[in-house]
C-alpha cells in the first residue's frame, strides 16, 4: 500500500515512523506544510492509496479541500477550529463525495476503548444510566467549551447511540451538565467542569446485568513520592496512542474497507453538539428531529 503524508514536521515524523514500520506499506510522499505559505502545497501523487493528514487543526480545512475525491484520506478529529466550520467542511466533503475517515483518538485510547467494547458487546445487559464526569484544570474560552468535548460526545454517540432528548445547562462558562435520553431510552449524564483545580475522569455505566466504573485517579499503576514532597504520576500504556490509531486505520483499510468512510457518524456527533448548544441557549429540552 502506498501512503502519502501531509502535515506539520513534528506530527509527520511520528506518523512516518509508524507507516515505515509496516513491511507492506510504501511511503510515497511526505509533505511538510509550510505554515507561512499554505498555497505553496506541492501537488500530490495520485499513485497513493491513502493520504494521512497530520496537520494542525486550523490547517486541516485548507488541506482537505485541496485533496479531492480520488484517494482515501485519514485525519484526526477535530477537522476544523469551530463547530460551524466543521459542519461547513463536512458538507463540502459530502458534496465532493470524498472518501475520508475522521479518527477520534478516544476510540483507540485503551480505557475508552475497553469501556466501549464491554458496553457494545452487551456485557452489562439492558443499558440503564451512564454517568461521565470530565474535569480539567484549564478554563476554555467561552465559545470553545463544546469544541473541546467533541471526542467525548463522539464516543458517547458511538457507544450509547443517538439521542432522543437533550437537556443541558451551562453555568459560568466553566461548568456544563448535559442530560441525554438515548433512542433506546437509556440515560447518559455528562458533566464537564473546567478550571476547578483538578484533572479527573469518572465514568460509570450501569446496566441490568452489572456496572462498569472507571476513575482516572484510581487507575494510575505507578505513583512516585519524593522526599522534597514533589509528586509525579507515571501511566505507561505500552503502544503509543498514534500507533493504536494508525494500526486501527490500517486494519480497516486492509480488512474492512467498506466501513472506512465515517462521515455519517461524525455528522451525527455534530448534531449532538448542536442540540446541547441549542438546549442551554433556549433553556428547553431539545428532541431529535425537533418534534
Amino acid at each position: 500500500m502506498k501512503v502519502t503524508l501531509i502535515g506539520n514536521e513534528s506530527e509527520l515524523s511520528k506518523h512516518l515512523s509508524f507507516w515505515e514500520s509496516i513491511p507492506a506499506v510504501q511511503v510515497e510522499q511526505s509533505i511538510v506544510v509550510n505554515e507561512d505559505n499554505l498555497d505553496s502545497l506541492p501537488s500530490f501523487s495520485y499513485q497513493s492509496e491513502l493520504i494521512d493528514v497530520c496537520a494542525s487543526t486550523e490547517w486541516k480545512p485548507f488541506i482537505l479541500k485541496r485533496l479531492g475525491r480520488k484517494i482515501p484520506i485519514i485525519v484526526e478529529s477535530p477537522i476544523a477550529s469551530s463547530i460551524r466550520e466543521t459542519k461547513h467542511l463536512l458538507n463540502f466533503i459530502k458534496e465532493e463525495q470524498m472518501m475520508i475517515r475522521i479518527v477520534n483518538p478516544l476510540m483507540t485510547s485503551p480505557e475508552w476503548m475497553n469501556l466501549n467494547q464491554r458496553f457494545t458487546t452487551h456485557q452489562l445487559g439492558n443499558s440503564g444510566v451512564n454517568r461521565i464526569s470530565s474535569k480539567s484544570e484549564v478554563v476554555p474560552g467561552d465559545d470553545r467549551f463544546l469544541e473541546q468535548e467533541l471526542h467525548v460526545i463522539d464516543w458517547i454517540y458511538r457507544t450509547f447511540g443517538d439521542f432522543n432528548t437533550i437537556f443541558a445547562k451551562k453555568v459560568d462558562s466553566r461548568y456544563m451538565t448535559v442530560h441525554i435520553r438515548h433512542k433506546d431510552n437509556s440515560f447518559t449524564h455528562l458533566e464537564l467542569a473546567r478550571g476547578f483545580g483538578k484533572e479527573e475522569l469518572n465514568i460509570e455505566l450501569a446496566g441490568s446485568k452489572g456496572m462498569l466504573t472507571h476513575k482516572s485517579n484510581e487507575t494510575n499503576p505507578i505513583s512516585i513520592a519524593k522526599i522534597d514532597m514533589s509528586k509525579r504520576k507515571v501511566n505507561p500504556i505500552g503502544t503509543s496512542l498514534i500507533q493504536r490509531q494508525l494500526e486501527d486505520v490500517h486494519h480497516i483499510l486492509t480488512k474492512d474497507h467498506h466501513s472506512f468512510n465515517n462521515i455519517t457518524e461524525v455528522t451525527e456527533t455534530i448534531d449532538f453538539i448542536e442540540a446541547i448548544e441549542s438546549s442551554f441557549n433556549q433553556a428547553i429540552p431539545v428532541t431529535k428531529g425537533g418534534a
Binding site: N126, V129, T177, H179, F187, H189, S208
Partner: peptide, 15 residues
Amino acid sequence: TRFYDIVVEDCGHVI
C-alpha cells in the same frame, strides 16, 4: 424502568 421488571421507575435523572 430499565433495570428490573417492576411497575415503578427504577432509574432516571433530575436537574
